[in-house]
Every structure is written in structure tokens, then in C-alpha cells.
Design a protein around this nucleic acid. Sequence first.
DNA 1: GTGTCAATAAATATCGATTTTTTTAAGGAT
DNA 2: ATCCTTAAAAAAATCGATATTTATTGACAC
Lengths: 244, 244
Amino acid sequence: MRGLSRFLLGFRRTKPRFHEDLDAMNLINTTQSGDTSATSAAYATLREMILSGALPAGEKLKIEHLRKILNTGASPVREALSLLTSDMLVERIDQRGFRAAPANFENFKEILGLRCALEDMALRQSITRATAEWEERVVLAHHRMKRVVNTETFEEAHKTFHMALLSNAASPVLERYCSQLYDLNIRYRNLAAGSVTYKKRDIGAEHDAILNAAIQRQEDAASDALLRHYRETGSYLTKALSNI
Amino acid sequence: MRGLSRFLLGFRRTKPRFHEDLDAMNLINTTQSGDTSATSAAYATLREMILSGALPAGEKLKIEHLRKILNTGASPVREALSLLTSDMLVERIDQRGFRAAPANFENFKEILGLRCALEDMALRQSITRATAEWEERVVLAHHRMKRVVNTETFEEAHKTFHMALLSNAASPVLERYCSQLYDLNIRYRNLAAGSVTYKKRDIGAEHDAILNAAIQRQEDAASDALLRHYRETGSYLTKALSNI
DNA sequence: GTGTCAATAAATATCGATTTTTTTAAGGAT
DNA sequence: ATCCTTAAAAAAATCGATATTTATTGACAC
């Protein structure tokens, strides 16, 4: 279970005394490895499987099948699926079980549009209320993202950076929505995997532009850079997904 | 279980052949009484108890206790609580169980502000895409709301009216968010119950104004009327809630 | 063929008991 | 008194079995 899951589900955190500064920034992975519940483990795995496409969109999620795959009981599986409902990754129909949330082009466009609207709102609020601590949090998250080589960990660092940008909006619900939409978008990116080519696109430069505008507290410039970043990605995916 | 629950949880609907027109408008209560699962029943009851304040904000929700109250098993209760997570009405902490979502003034203000922003967005999109069907849906919902005498059913009709206004935005996720925020706001209204006096306020007229602007497809006027409606309510509640 | 019905199979949902974890209480030691 | 450590109680989480509901199949009529 990774650090970001904690943001989404109610996981506990046992913090060491040292690292207080970084931890207060929510930038330390304070996950304890072995001792989470079977439900949480199932939640994390199923979440990853749906986001990655290992469990295809719209697929019927049979308890017995998942129970075997995850090597756990029916209760944790059911509970994990119920929790995944929050993230709009799983649908539940009474007495007919669960299925992975469907994916289609309409939905993709909706996600993209909403995401732009909500992140714009959140980023502007973050900048309006800017503090030195927030600034440092953003700079640090950006640095870590740049430094990462591994693709796996880059995804995590990338989300952390984007969420750090919004983290000063003082609006937990808005942040929650943005996090949800971020993940749903990632799912579509994974769904389009292979056909997506980020050729002739300097994502690093895009991130730099957002960062610089943000820490210079230029609302409009930061928002422009952010939305350009999303729309750029969106138009790549639009091509790849228009046929789903 | 009431009609609106269907909007939130994945309940099935067995529709009779007749009433097709009204049903297509999603304005018929197509709930079948006896045959929902224990989980769904628990979900509906717990939801109502949290919204009404019967289960106070922040309260520890012990499985055994709820199991007795609801006269059902532990599994349905756990599953219902897991589902209520989606609505931000219940919080879950791994291995420490569930509690009713906390309520505080900060959160209230956030809900109010977000709600204004999102409903404004949704209403404008609805009007932009206006059709005769949508118009009829709104008029009908409005009429039913006006007609209702019982306080109990008024609440339901009131939400139906507001959701009908947004129902043409072609944005299910946005509607979902608006529905969530609506309920969270209702919760604060219930929490402030007693101290709230709607004296010298003509809520009927406010609804009329929204309706008229909407069916005349005047985006700005409708949005103004809607936001005024919410901010009016908001300022009443602000006085009552500033001390929680 | 197409539709309906009953029988069977499969899957969901639920129960009751057990295991694991957390919380509370009690007893010393400093 | 405050801080650990340990024992007991309470609560959460999980398991395995069973009941309930839905989905599938095949026979039969039209």
C-alpha cells in the first residue's frame, strides 16, 4: 500500500519523532507495511487493478473470483468494493453485485472538463492563500518528481506534485474531488496506453511553467499553464480514445 | 427507502409499462417496497439518521450498537457504512471502525461555497442545452413541490426540483457532486434546527424566480436567482452555526 | 423461430462464531 | 503524580457456512 492511498482511505499513521518537518508537509511515506486490514489490502489492490485496466471497465466483479485472486475472504472483498464506490471506480447494483465503472468517450470528456474547472478553482484559491510552507511543499514535490527515474514511482510523484499545488486551497472537499478526477483521468490514460505518444512534448517544461507561476503567485499564469498541461494531455488522449 | 435514494445508491427499478412518459423524466417513485437487501435498508436508515442528526456529527458508529438498532447483522451494517463513505457522511479509519462525519463551521462554509460554484456551473450547462423535455421536467417538479403540504415530503420534492434544474447538464459526475453537497448542506440545516427562523422570507417566490429564469433560458438571471437562494439560506445558517 | 415456464446452476447477500486488534483498567517503578 | 508494562475487556475484522436472489438452461406450446 502506497502513500497516496492514505489520502483516499482512512489509514492510520504512526509517525516517528524525527522528520516532523517533512511529515507535516505530508510528503513522507508514513505507511507501515504489514499491519493493515485485509479490507484495506483488497481496496488498494483492486483500486490499482481498475486504474491500470487489469480489471477492464464495465467488467462484472464477482466476489468469488476476486476472493481467489486476492487470496482473502468474501467480506473484505465486498467491503473493499463498497469503498471503491466512493472513488467512482466501482458501481453497485443492489442484489446484482458490483462492476468496474464503465468507460466511454462521453465520460472521458466530462472528467477532463470538470477537472479543468475544479483544479482551476483550487489552484487559484491555493495561490490566493499562499504561504511559505505551501511554496516549499510545492517546490519539494516538484523536485522529487524531476528526480525520479522509475516510471512506477513517477506516477506517484506526479500526482503528489499536482495535489501539492492544490493543497493550500483550504478546501478538503474540493481536493477530494480533484483527487478523484485525477485518478479517473489516469485510468483513461492507461486505457489508451500504447497508442499514446508523447512525442515532441516537453512535459518537464510544462511542469516548470506551472511551478514558477505558482510560486511567483501569479494566479492567471499558473492557471493557464495548468490547464494547458491538461488540455494538451487531453487532446492526445482524445485521439486515442475516440473509438472506445 | 425513498425515491431519492435510488439516485445515490445502485438500486434496481422494476418499472410498470404505463407511466412511461413521466418515468422517463425520472419523476416517478418506482421503488418496490419489500424486496431490497438488508444492506440497502441499513444504508437508507443510517443515511437518514446522519442527515437528520439522530446520529450526531463525529459520533463513533459501533457496529454492534447499530446492528441492534437496525435489527440486522453486522455485515449489512459494515457494508452500509462503507457505502456511506461515498457521500462523505461517514469516515472510516482502518481497524478503528467508522464514525459519523464531523461537522464544523469551516466545513459548512466550504460546502456552501463549493455548492454555489458547482450548481452555478451545472445550471448554466443545463440551460445552454435546454430542451422541451427538460423544461417540462423542471416545471413538473416545481409544481409538485408547491403542492406538497407535508414537511417530510416537501424535503424530497425540494431536492427533486433543484436536481431537475441541473439534470440537463449532461454531466453525471457534476450532478453527483451537487447531490452530495446538497445533502451535506441539509445536514447543517437540520443541525441548526430550531434556531433557524425563516421569518420574512418568501421561499416560494425565490423558487418561482429560479424557475421562470430557467425556462426562459436566461442563464445569468437563473444563476443569480439560484445563488441568491443559497446565500440567503446560507446566511441564516451561518448565524445559527457560528458557534458549533 | 419465438416466447413462456419451470428446474437448475450460479452468484449475491447474510448470519453466527471466531480471530485479531484496539481500548481501557490496573499495577507497580521511578 | 507520571510513565511504562501488563492483563482484561471491548470492538473491529474476518471466516466458513447457509439462505436468498438472480441468471441460465431446456422442455414445451404456439
